[in-house]
Design a protein around this nucleic acid. Structure first.
Length: 856
RNA sequence: GCCGGGGUGGCGGAAGUGGCAGACGCAACGGACUUAAAAUCCGUUGGAGGUAACCCCCUCCGUGCGGGUUCAAGUCCCGCCCCCGGCACCA
């Protein structure tokens, strides 16, 4: 046997990388919409060097795009960079450079990494959000939003991150900490710009139902985040005052159980009460309590559940349903941001109110009774039931009472049905430098004046970077003249949240070079929604909700004609790796750790845990390292094979080696045969031997299952099917190398190479040529399976006795549906076993099994 | 606390509508090749037991735990336990 050339992945990968660059297979004419397919991966923040965990997203995307391309789709598969953001500023401070230089350098590095991975994008469509030709349109959209009342400026208690020295959106606060830097978030009262996402709360919620190809959990998260509640607003008069205390409740059926009222420390009435408090001592106490409660708000929520505390204002409210007089408290557990900032306290039927009432000795009056809850209450009963102690409403069910009491209040002008959402407006102001300047001017005479569209973009000042303070420190930037009165004025020095950038970039990709408008609306309406969107589940709320909001807002402005940006969504899981920590030397890189798990510096026992790959934990695996040792195809294959792509999973070196071994087996199989197949004739299934038929069948079964698996993103099982086929072909060769059906072998190997190519494109391109072709794999049609090949000549039937497999036999395929025949043969199989047992029943599942039910 | 998702060999994981549990890979063990090792190739591998002694083969148990439905349950139903993710004083 002639020696087979070694699988020289370095040479192969170099060759085809260059080739793909030249060919431009993913250049697409967007005027052509026939069989269009818009595939999109979430674009990355250019944070530096990518690790194998980042790779998962792009490898999935490249595999899927290649597959679609081979199926004859007109595939739009673009990539860009979410290039504004804080890390660039922090890095610039650290390295004494400019955020722009740092960002551009990272982008260049990452583009090289994509190339090394064999990932093919149409770079002519690249987007960099930090370029004026992109952020100009952020500003333009801002002005449109402003015009349509969707952008406004307001005082608000905002989330302030002391680490980033900027405010954050609600969505960016995780467990009371900054999403980016982990600092404890504080509350500050500031004047900020908002986008009115709440105007779309109902539609954002309702349209989740349309997203049938989105993961259930993502929809659920958005559903909860929007947090719709139906209830009733009720107006409580305040004794001796013209003010009205408006509350929101989802349980109007419990309104007869009200024994106190509570308002948030930030509630406007607090000022009122303070101002009119005659006793200076009490006034001081009240002020102190409010101050303390407000401070409490600054302590991380979610840390410890703070004890409920209140302060009696000395005022009373009148319950509109029974004219009872109830005390009004200021309470730390009432939130100003939700509902009306005030609640009615029903201790018997709300656990929070219950605790509060216990502490302050307030009456706990039961007004709902049910099977599960009667007699003395040891905790609030929050379930539904029948009304008691509720005047004319006694005996009604909670549900009926909800409606009747609502109507009662409405008829008397003291209440109304209402719907409230947890969703808050999107705070987009950031007090930073490296972002899109907000195109607004503050003029002492004219007030807030938008920058005229003709003057866009408002460029970031081209000055040496001066560190954290942002635009507010750069007079060259903020000194300007008012567009209206031409007098001296000041630019707004806030920049936009970078989530604005990513809320519409998927539109820009369709026509990225438009100079006079953000996108070509005709092309966008043809190509959107994105057919398949893929990214990390960490964006389930932020980016995906904002993008949906943008799409709806643009639709209402007549700029696009669709309601939802992403038709299909897939969220891939995180790749984790063991992280080693020494009590003295902190995180140790895995490559430094020997088998004994001792610190290489001091010999102490290391703490070993599985973590998401991160620079700080020093547990990242560099793709360069894997590519140098095994090649990009091995990394790609392992990444896709290691487990279901939506699940978090551990990266192991052994797994990588296994994938490398497999590629070598394929290489050896193809090369050992390729030369002998030059004179292979026509494929002639009619003449197949039985063995050849099974090979043929296996091939077509594999084509079928790989195709179906890719459609469902089941790359791991697709690859295992390919491994199964490879094993079968290897066995077939080994059985009798001299007697191989060359036509069949050629047919099988060619198809093997084609169905493998989305996963491991380099080796497949090479093998394709070695099989005698001179055109590219990406120019081939995706194989289709031959349904005749799937028909087995024989089928195996399982024989069970009382559900347990006891025998099996094969029948010719044409008999496998014949119940009587199967029963006859099955009984014959187990003849000897039925000693003294009586056959009660026989169940035949055609083509599968026969179950014989017996009794002693 | 509420809402999702999940629990299958030593490990990652397979098993359309209930129908052969453990595909594929890793690890481990045994063997071949080698002066030797690596690489490669072949074989074994859920647990317990039996038969056989060249191969076969058979029985029982086994998909987090306890019940149930069914000829048949990883899959369906009821009740628990545990893990992961999201939300969390949202009235």
């Amino acid at each position: 046997m002639p020696r087979i050339a070694k699988y020289d992945f370095k040479k192969i990968e170099k060759r085809w990388k260059d080739f793909w660059d030249k060919q431009g297979f993913f250049k697409v004419d967007t005027n052509h919409t026939e069989k269009k397919f818009y595939y999109l991966n979430m674009f990355p923040y250019p944070s530096g060097v990518l690790h194998v965990g980042h790779g998962r997203n792009y490898i999935i995307g490249d595999a899927f795009a290649r597959y679609k391309k081979m199926q004859g789709f007109n595939v739009l598969n673009p990539m860009g960079f979410d290039a504004f953001g804080l890390p660039a500023e922090n890095a610039a401070i650290e390295n004494k450079t400019h955020p722009r230089d740092w960002t551009i350098a990272n982008i260049e590095g990452m583009k090289k990494q994509f190339r090394d991975w064999g990932i093919v994008y149409d770079w002519d469509r690249e987007i960099r959000t930090c370029e004026p030709d992109y952020y100009k349109w952020n500003q333009w959209f801002f002005l449109q939003f402003y015009k349509h009342g969707l952008a406004y400026r307001a005082d608000a208690v905002a989330n302030w991150c002391p680490g980033c020295e900027t405010v954050l959106a609600n969505e960016q606060v995780i467990d009371g900490r900054c999403e980016r830097c982990d600092s404890l978030v504080e509350k500050r009262k500031l004047t900020q710009w908002f986008f009115k996402i709440t105007q779309y709360a109902e539609e954002l919620l309702k349209d989740l139902e349309k997203l049938e190809h989105w993961p259930e959990r993502v929809k659920k998260m958005q559903y909860n985040w929007i947090g719709r509640s139906e209830g009733v607003e009720a107006d409580f008069a305040i004794e001796g005052s013209s003010h009205i205390l408006k509350i929101f409740t989802t349980r109007p059926d419990t309104i007869f159980g009200v024994t106190f009222m509570a308002i948030a420390p930030e509630h406007p009435l607090v000022e009122e009460f303070l101002a009119h408090e005659p006793d200076p001592h009490r006034r001081a106490q009240m002020a102190e309590f409010v101050q303390r409660a407000l401070q409490q708000g600054e302590i991380a929520r979610g840390a410890v559940t703070v004890e409920k505390e209140g302060f009696f204002t000395g005022h009373y409210a009148i319950n509109p349903v029974n004219n009872e007089r109830v005390p009004i408290y200021i309470a730390n557990y009432v939130l100003m941001e939700y509902g009306t900032g005030a609640i009615m306290g029903v201790p018997a039927h709300d656990q929070r109110d219950f605790e509060f009432a216990k502490k302050y000795g307030l009456e706990i009056r039961r007004v709902i009774e049910s099977e599960e809850s009667k007699g003395e209450l040891t905790a609030a009963f929050e379930g539904e039931g029948w009304l008691v102690n509720s005047g004319q409403f006694n005996g009604l069910s909670s549900r009926e009472a909800f409606r009747k009491i609502g109507e009662f209040l409405e008829s008397r002008g003291q209440g109304r049905f209402a719907v409230k959402y947890k969703l808050r407006d999107w705070l987009i102001s950031r007090q930073r430098y490296w972002g899109t300047p907000i195109p607004m001017i503050h003029c002492e005479r004219c007030g807030i004046v938008p920058v005229p569209e003709s003057e866009l973009p408002v460029l970031l000042p081209n000055v040496p970077f001066i560190g954290k303070k942002g635009l507010a420190e750069i007079p060259e930037f903020y000194q300007t003249t008012c567009p209206q009165c031409k007098g001296p004025a000041k630019r707004d020095t806030d920049t936009m949240d970078t989530f604005v950038d990513s809320s519409w970039y998927f539109l820009r990709f369709v026509s990225p070079h438009e100079q006079t408008r953000p996108f070509d609306p005709d092309a966008v309406n043809r190509w959107l929604p994105v057919d398949q969107y893929v990214g990390g589940v960490e964006h389930a709320i932020l980016h995906l909700l904002y993008s949906r909001f943008f799409t709806k807002a643009l639709r209402d402005m007549g700029l696009v004609k669709f309601d939802e940006p992403f038709a299909r969504l897939f969220t891939q899981g995180i790749i984790k790796h063991l992280a080693y920590r020494c009590p003295e030397h902190n995180w140790i890189h895995p490559s430094e750790v020997k088998e004994d798990n001792k610190c290489p510096h001091c010999g102490r026992e290391l703490k070993v845990d599985l973590h998401k790959m991160s620079k700080s934990k020093r547990n990242t695996i560099s793709p360069q390292h894997v590519i140098d040792e095994y090649g990009a195809d091995t990394e790609r294959l392992y990444t896709l094979f290691m487990g279901p792509p939506e699940k978090d999973i551990e990266w192991t070196d052994e797994g990588v080696r296994g994938s490398f071994r497999f590629l070598n087996r394929v290489w050896n199989l193809v090369l050992s045969q390729a030369r002998k197949l030059t004179d292979a004739g026509e494929l002639n299934p009619a003449q197949f031997t039985e063995r050849e038929r099974t090979v043929w069948q296996k091939l077509h079964q594999t084509i079928k299952s790989v195709t179906e698996d890719i459609e469902q993103f089941h790359f791991n099982t697709a690859i295992s099917a390919i491994m199964g086929l490879t094993n079968e072909l290897t066995d077939y060769v080994a059985e009798n190398p001299k007697k191989i059906n060359k036509a069949l072998m050629k047919h099988a190997l060619e198809n093997l190479v084609l169905i493998m190519s989305p996963f491991t494109p380099f080796i497949c391109e090479e093998l394709w040529r070695r099989l005698g072709h001179d055109d590219a794999v990406l120019e081939q049609r995706w194989p289709s399976y031959n349904s005749q090949a799937l028909q087995a000549a024989e089928r195996e039937i399982v024989v069970q006795i009382n559900g347990k497999v006891r025998a099996r036999f094969t029948v010719p395929a044409e008999l496998s549906e014949d119940r009587a025949e199967l029963e006859k043969r099955a009984l014959a199989q187990i003849q000897g076993r039925l000693d003294g047992e009586q056959v009660v029943k026989v169940i035949v599942v055609p083509g599968r099994l026969v179950n014989i039910v017996v009794k002693k």
